Amino acid sequence: MVVPFEYVAALNATMKLTTTDHDRPQVVGVARSREIVGSVIVASIQGKDVAAAAAAADKDLTEFLKTDGK
């Protein structure tokens, strides 16, 4: 698997700013978190307002992580 240099650089920078050993939130309800994130992609495919969908998903995921995040 080839990982883009930009991703590796961003990941390394992020890992310097955190005290965790992972690069994304860990959750119990993985399916729900994927639905929230995926809603932006679905909005894009359907020709809907992607910026609005992203803002809504950001809010929804933030709330979700407060109750479901490890």
Rank of each mutant, 00 (worst) to 15 (best):
M1T: 10
M1K: 13
V3D: 09
P4R: 10
F5T: 12
E6P: 10
Y7E: 09
A9D: 13
N12R: 06
N12S: 14
A13P: 00
T14N: 09
L17S: 10
L17F: 04
T18I: 07
T20P: 05
D21I: 01
R24Y: 15
P25V: 03
V27A: 04
G29W: 06
G29R: 10
V30F: 06
A31L: 12
A31Q: 11
R32V: 10
E35G: 09
I36P: 00
V37K: 11
V37P: 07
G38N: 11
G38E: 07
G38I: 14
V40M: 02
V40F: 01
V40E: 00
S44C: 13
S44T: 09
S44L: 15
S44F: 13
I45L: 11
I45E: 03
Q46E: 07
D49L: 07
D49H: 04
A52C: 10
A52F: 06
A53M: 06
A54D: 02
A55P: 11
A56R: 08
K59V: 00
K59E: 01
L61C: 01
L61P: 00
T62I: 03
F64D: 02
L65P: 00
L65G: 02
K66R: 13
K66E: 07
T67C: 06
D68L: 07
D68N: 14
K70W: 08
